[in-house]
Write a protein that binds this DNA or RNA. Structure first.
Length: 113
DNA sequence: CGTGTGACACGTA
DNA sequence: TTACGTGCCACAC
């Protein structure tokens, strides 16, 4: 139940999130920076509100840390998509290997263009 | 109109 | 290399 409808900015954020290819991920800041609007916090807000309809697990922190409360679900997706994961000496998955999984949206990407 | 919070990011230890 | 603290922008009360 959302108390507001997706704004134009939200639609753009969701659009980018939907375009993130499997095995790749984008940081909130990257999406905000790519759109050139608002900031990472605003992107995170959009994902928190309407991110449930997109590959939310492909949108994580810039340091590669997984989404709190959904690490397990996200981890399962990464294993299925073969997303480069980062593990500690203990072998525990600490997050995603952003240096390899980080995906940058093409400048003139746009679905219709 | 002002204060507090959040699916964040950078700097420091 | 990993973990913790502070600052930003916009929304809700």
């Amino acid at each position: 139940m959302v108390t507001a409808q997706p704004t134009d900015f939200a639609e753009r954020v969701l659009r980018v999130a939907e375009n993130i290819p499997p095995g790749r991920v984008m940081s909130y800041g990257d999406i905000a920076e790519y759109l050139g609007e608002k900031g990472p916090r605003q992107v995170g807000r959009v994902m928190a509100l309407w991110g449930g309809g997109v590959a939310w697990w492909r949108v994580i922190h810039a340091d590669g840390s997984l989404l709190a409360g959904h690490e397990h679900q996200a981890l399962a997706r990464y294993l299925e998509e073969g997303t480069p994961l980062r593990r500690t000496r203990d072998g525990a998955v600490c997050g995603v290997d952003m240096r390899r999984a980080r995906w940058l949206a093409p400048e003139g990407w746009r679905q219709g263009g």
